[in-house]
Design a protein around this nucleic acid. Structure first.
Lengths: 333, 333
DNA sequence: TCTCGCTAAGAGAACACTTTCTTATGTGGA
DNA sequence: TCCACATAAGAAAGTGTTCTCTTAGCGAGA
């Protein structure tokens, strides 16, 4: 790869002048500009953005840390962020944390050490204190789908508790009282909140929470299957199953059908997230809409505003989920 | 952020010594090492990998360019690559091309200019010649899910033609002769190959290809719905529908059910890719397994071997798809 | 014709590291 | 006791940019 030095030599000008042509942030005579541009073309010159980053200590790129690269939820999230940022000419550097503390920290350090202008974090294992500490550093951090009071200006998050409440409430309104719940891993903040919402809905309706009708899954489809299997072994009858995400709801539904249960007549199921395929499973899955794409957009807008001084109207930090009614809940009683 | 200079001052040693401690590639006495390490801890020092990159012109990271960040297929692909690379201590920088030429080129340039040690490309809009040209540059490139003969050592790809053939053949073996096809965008190599495979299967079985039973979709679920709607308006009877991916198959299936068609009795459907949710739609979708996760692993192994000299046995460049039989194809006649 | 003032272009430091070359220190053998 | 040698540590150059000073050159006004 040719360097700015070679260009300057070929064009017969100084380094500074070549730099001025590249960034055209300062007057350069047309004649000189032309000479330089011709030299750049001839050498196939491309600025080395590593060197630019070092000199500017800025990189025109923002880091994203997600738990996983696969899964409908993370796909939407990354796509949401990237679309807005790319439209503004910014690049995105993505890495993963796999929901384990060391890897999350390592990922964060990687992004910071790459001179990202800001980083967007979807972290689950790291503590609030760590994040607060981190926010005092040079690189601004933004939290997606996690709420830390002290960092609230930099948080974009969903009211997961409300979502959990709405899901269970929807099922109750169809007459169900015997309700099982397959939750997410209880070290993840959203999983905790969704469960809390479920319990609030039960309490509001004077239905006792029965720990035997609770199963903790890992948000994978296989956990839906395992969860339903496990719950059924207990021989406590239930007519509705609330799942903390759509993947687990799908897994449970598939397993229920293998058992020849009539759906939704014999078992009503509701999910959470409203990922695209929720409308393609049968019966079409009722669920809670998680506007993760919009939240991704919003995180990007926040950064565009704060970091790059591009004005973005309508900033919103806290999103409300809403119920999506489809065909997977039956009336009872 | 503190620098190596501040560490050296605090520890009372030279820059070189600090660097030696960081990289421990040279003898440093235990006493000095300890002093330096204490200074690093006290200052919360983290090496700036941008500066390291510049000095070393290497970055311990590999770039990935995908068409989209969302979608089950890309999720699996990214996850496959990342898992293997991360296990070897390498980082991944992901960006997107959105299947449009300019954006693909821009993404590639971004990755190259970030000093990636190698880049993995899933590109669809850029020409073979461009790629061949690119491969002559300093940064090694690897192509995933695309075959360019001149670059075959750096390609990992699936026999899409065979996959298309297997899908249609599966349907024919169930007695179908009136077969519709919803393809992918015909500028994408895999979409072209899958269609070619479909046509070969028809030809092998002496079934003429009827252009009226072909619809070109965009690989999204909505295209499945639109495609089926469009095909039905033509009033040419068909009993089976082959889709070039699972998303479109799901969309078509959902629409078919809305029309109250009995599935699979009145319409057999087969997809392609075997994404996770294919087993959760109803009837469970028969499809063609696309081992994209394994292919991602393989791309990573190839790079580990070529670039980082980590020996990886069992390199394989060309993958064969296979038929996954589930419940979405009915016997006929 | 001389000088003032403006603009285009150059010189060189800075960015945070790595690494080669060089020097200082200490050890062991004669 | 002296010298050779090994080894730890330092000095300084190099990596490819940007950017702040500084200077050269030119036109206009007196």
């Amino acid at each position: 790869m040719s360097t700015i030095y070679e260009v300057s030599k070929l064009a017969g000008v100084s380094l500074a002048t070549v730099s001025r042509v590249i960034n055209n942030n300062s007057k350069v005579s047309d004649k000189t500009r032309q000479k330089v541009q011709e030299a750049m073309v001839e050498l196939g010159y491309r600025p080395n953005s590593i060197a630019q980053s070092l000199a500017l200590s800025t990189s025109n790129s923002v880091g994203i840390l997600v738990s996983e690269l696969s899964g409908a939820f993370f796909g939407q999230m990354m796509a949401g962020i990237e679309a807005k940022l790319r439209a503004a000419g910014k690049h995105v550097i993505i890495t993963t944390g796999h929901s384990v503390e060391d890897k999350e920290k390592e990922g964060i350090e990687f992004l910071i050490s790459r001179n990202c202008d800001a980083i967007i974090l979807h972290v689950e294992a790291v503590t609030d204190d760590y994040l607060i500490d981190l926010s005092k550093g040079k690189t601004p951090i933004y939290l997606l789908s996690r709420w830390v009071e002290e960092l609230s200006d930099n948080c974009i998050s969903l009211d997961n508790e409300l979502g959990g409440y709405l899901a269970t409430q929807a099922v109750i309104e169809h007459g169900h009282v015997n309700i099982a719940y397959i939750g997410g891993p209880q070290f993840k903040p959203d999983a905790i909140d969704r469960l809390a919402g479920h319990q609030r809905a039960l309490a509001t309706n004077k239905i006792p929470f029965n720990a035997a009708l609770y199963y903790e899954g890992d948000y994978q489809d296989t956990a839906g299957r395992e969860g339903l299997k496990n719950l059924l072994t207990k021989n406590i009858p239930f007519t509705a199953l609330v799942c903390a995400n759509d993947e687990m709801a799908s897994g449970a539904m598939t397993y229920a059908r293998e058992l020849a249960l009539a759906l939704p007549q014999q078992l009503s199921i509701i999910g959470f997230d409203n990922v695209i395929f929720a409308q393609h499973i049968y019966p079409k899955l009722s669920t809670i809409d998680n506007p993760i794409l919009a939240m991704g957009h919003m995180a990007a807008k926040l950064i565009l505003r704060d970091i790059y001084q591009i004005k973005c109207p309508l900033i919103k930090h806290f999103f409300k989920p809403k119920l999506i009614t489809r065909d997977s809940i039956a009336n009872i009683g």
